[in-house]
Design a protein around this nucleic acid. Sequence first.
DNA 1: GTCACCCGGATTGTTGACAATCCTGTCAGC
DNA 2: GCTGACAGGATTGTCAACAATCCGGGTGAC
Lengths: 221, 221
Amino acid sequence: MPPARASTQNDLTTQLREAIARGRLLPNERLIETDLAATYGVNRAHIRMALAMLDQEGLVVRERNRGARVRAVSDDEALEIAETRLAIETMIAGQAARRVTDSDRKALRAILTRMRGCVDGEDYAGFSDANAALHREIQRIAANATASRIVASLKSQIVRLQYRVILLPGRPALSLAEHRRIVETICAGDRAGAEAAMRAHLTSFLRLLKQAIAAAHHGGF
Amino acid sequence: MPPARASTQNDLTTQLREAIARGRLLPNERLIETDLAATYGVNRAHIRMALAMLDQEGLVVRERNRGARVRAVSDDEALEIAETRLAIETMIAGQAARRVTDSDRKALRAILTRMRGCVDGEDYAGFSDANAALHREIQRIAANATASRIVASLKSQIVRLQYRVILLPGRPALSLAEHRRIVETICAGDRAGAEAAMRAHLTSFLRLLKQAIAAAHHGGF
DNA sequence: GTCACCCGGATTGTTGACAATCCTGTCAGC
DNA sequence: GCTGACAGGATTGTCAACAATCCGGGTGAC
């Protein structure tokens, strides 16, 4: 089932990026230009271009005359990425606290309410969506396009690992509490508090990520 | 004077990146594929690829059917970039403090000595080099490739502005003191201290950057 | 004088063909 | 049985030609 034909270069790159992030293209899987071109209904040159960009982005590795593969992020790299994300998103939370307006406050609290509903209803997919929406909203408020772009790029490299953490028992409830504190500090315009709250949240995430990785090593699967 | 022929795709991209960073290609300057191909002695396809990667990297903007231009970072963007860099490099300093070894300590102190020599001899170019070397060394010690890559990319977008700050009167001496504190805290394995020292250093840099931008606005030149 | 229109040059977008390279399996020699 | 050379196919790298698009200037109507 070939995906819808990509109209522009950017669309194609986005499609490939999502295919990797969603796991439709697996780590270390070879990305053969001719095949991809046929699958997406475009010319090889487009694929070549998209692969070059995804290479630059860190989602794909290319070796001369050997082709491209989906980059397999090692455990160490995953932690590196998560820590870097922590540093940037902490800053973003602080900036959001400085710039927050009344309508922003309303939007943040609305998403938080949605999250609580998902926790009560044990709707994990919905919770995950609301989670992403909240972080996106905070980024929008912070209005730091550079940082947002980088965070997006980092996230796409470790999305698959995130699911392992989200599905841990009791995680959503704890996560909700952490997010509530983030929202409240940002709404209060408390920059240092927002930074601390976001740092605490992502540190907690990082700790669980480490545990998940260690568990997988011991033969989880 | 055409630069040496680029042997590989990566080399070409690097050459273009440096040409932009060094100011040989000015902001908003049109990057005409045919011309660049002739200049660098390669095919248009290579140029096209390199431009796509630099676009992804944020050094170049491309509009469909309109070609590519060197991206002009606005003042606001410059501050965004500097703040993001601050957040990441602060984290890097902390990681370096955790991982530092004896040989690392020696290397750090050697660079510091070099910096002091440049300050005494009023060798601004040398100071700038030593400065870069020190930051590179700290990144090497932190061993966070992801973060290092991002910082490099951010730096390349605002290198030109850095010169304005470095050349301010009294800046090198102050900068030296800041760097000394960074080195000492890292050598002591004092993570929080290293983070604080790096944050102080880059905050000081950021403040001067803001001043330089404001000054330029009032008609400096 | 101004506006709309159109045309030609310049530039980018797209495509297919060919060359270069790498990987795999096979076979001869030891 | 093992090693090395070698052929064949698969895949990427390179290139030039053609198509599509944009931009500027000029022309004519009003």
